[in-house]
Design a protein around this nucleic acid. Sequence first.
DNA 1: AGCACGCCGACT
DNA 2: GTCGGCGTGCTC
Length: 743
Amino acid sequence: MTIIARVALDLSLDKTFDYLIPPELAGQIQSGSRVKVPFGKRELLGSVMALLDHSPHSNLKLVLKVLGPRPLLIPQVMDLARWMADYYCCPFELALKSALPEAVRKEKSGWRAQLWVRWISPPGQIPKLTGRQREILKRLEEVREIPLKQFLQTTNSTAALLRKLECRCLLEIREKIQERDPYGDDIIIPSAPLELNPEQNAALGAISAALQNPARAGKFKPVFLLHGVTGSGKTEVYLQSIAKTLELGRGAIVLVPEIALTPQTVERFKARFSTGPLQTLVAVLHSHLSSGERHDEWQKILQGRARIVIGARSAVFAPVNPLGLIIVDEEHESSYKQEEAPRYHARDVAVMRGRMEQCVVVLGSATPSLESYYNARNRKYSLLEMTVRADDKKLPLVRVVDMRHEFRKEKGIPIFSQLLKSAIERRLEQCEQTILFLNRRGYASSLQCPKCGYVAGCPNCSISLTYHRQESQLRCHICGHTGQVPDLCPACRNPAIRFAGIGTEKVEEALRKLFPRARVQRMDSDILKRKNDYRLLLGDFRSGKIDILLGTQMIAKGLHFPNVTLVGIVYADLSLHIPDFRAGERTFQLLTQVAGRAGRGEIEGEVFVQSFTPFHPAIQYARRHDFQGFYEQELEFRQQLQYPPVSRVALLTIKGKIEEKVRFTAECLKRELEQRLSPFDGLVMAGPAPAPLARAETWFRYHLMLRIRQMSKLSQSLALELKNFKCPEEVSVTVDIDPVNLM
DNA sequence: AGCACGCCGACT
DNA sequence: GTCGGCGTGCTC
């Protein structure tokens, strides 16, 4: 007899509590149910982790209430959360929090209910009615059922009047659940599967074979790395793989980076699956949904009505059951990594979920992460290569412009080389479009005094302030601090203080000066203030109202505009010199992705990469569209320094307001860990050292980096040691397993 | 996370 | 003799 529920409360205690199940709730509570329980003198919500018949504790309290008719957590996702807590060193309640959105876990149901009026056929003899009443009933008989509010408006009647008629059994007023649909207003035109080229066919064939029998390792490992050049038609392979999954009676999860979750992406999936023999709902999960929409989407999945989920990072926990396929599109994207605890990487969680539920996982990218490609090379994943564009278009010609030469010709550093300038001119004459990319917003990256070397820095962070011309102020891109622009150097009173380093605002200004008749649009997070701006801007670009689109990161991904024949990367070195062992990899990915925006139409595309280090491998391999070459040389570098993918990293950050205290704590922690973790073979500990961003939002930060061959064993011991470590007051320690951001 | 208990200093 | 500071530890 199971009469005890083991509950994980909605607190980060890393501990469960046992409660008796009262007889009236017996049978209603299962593993995964949400319950309300007494805790001290409070009442809290929690998730049932297990049902037991014994508890090591006596005087158990009673469960107060069960929420909802069915468990919100499916056992598979609960297991996944447990693994996540262990691997990423976080309390499992925190892991559970990611797996179950706030909108779903709270007490009140979350469904939006609306009052509806319904016509009832009159019971035998019709009682005496006034003319007005008769008129209202007649109207209702015509429409049969209608939202109360709407009916009151059209008939100009009152609720009291209708209630009176309800009492006489002439109509019925009741609550009806009004399901929200975040894309309800979109018109979806059904799409049919496209013809596949041989490479796409081979990829689909391999995935289908694995879908048929994921349990048997056989010819294919169930994790695929789909390496397809930009424009090779990966999405069509995804779509047809999903169709196959549905045929086999299973569901699918599609993960895309948050910025890629545009209405167009969603539409593409809805168009294929909202009609036809396999018709199913496509649920969408991302951070811009209202909590009500999120609740409804989640319920649609839980009820099995939506069997395809498309979403950002956290959609990897969607309660799809049974699950057959997980797709991680643009698997190299850093936005899959959550930067707050639990610091999970959705791609890695997807691979683990795939293994636990024996389903197929497809990781897709034109520029795979070194980690994934390494796994494919070592036969942990199956490698699928697509080397040609689906439409047989050629990859764009990429030219690297050596800006050091440009520097000598003119006075100072020009923003545009002669080559890029004339290329833009040509596009303007031919009415073709240009995309310009610069990975830095603002006008100038710093304010510098040429005489004494003073640089305007943030008072809270260890970086320089960026000058924003539009607001005419200095701004910190870390903490948001703003300051006035001084007329004189605050240190030496020199009036010739000047701006250094370029940002998108300055490029915009230069463009307008150089091409006064061109329609230029800047696109960065300073421009996109409102929710719909992104959509509207891209709409303008698509319809040809913009000649030159200038932007940061956000224009690098997935945009598909046939009339874009020129892409210019204003300053390719920007991402190359950040203190991170992945700087080269990031640059290669960024250049390849941006270059892929050119030549999506009839006319061949052209790409100009401006650089001061034109012979850097990341730039040269990107120029030749040579991923393999880049991979080989980058892997060698990683091997030499024992960085991922040949090792795993755990990054500890020690934070506090007093630098000396932070440094001291970091040193104590290192000594402790050196002792306690000595049994781990091949563990390398670097630091403590001030973090690259040594101070952020007034906090001093020190890093301690651990590297080891295999992480899974280390992370549990690490969690234990950190729990036992007595951290002084006002200092805190955080762990990041497999960190992506090393700043 | 919150809320008690508890053990020391300054007030009616 | 009592009020209140916030350190420590417990909550099934």
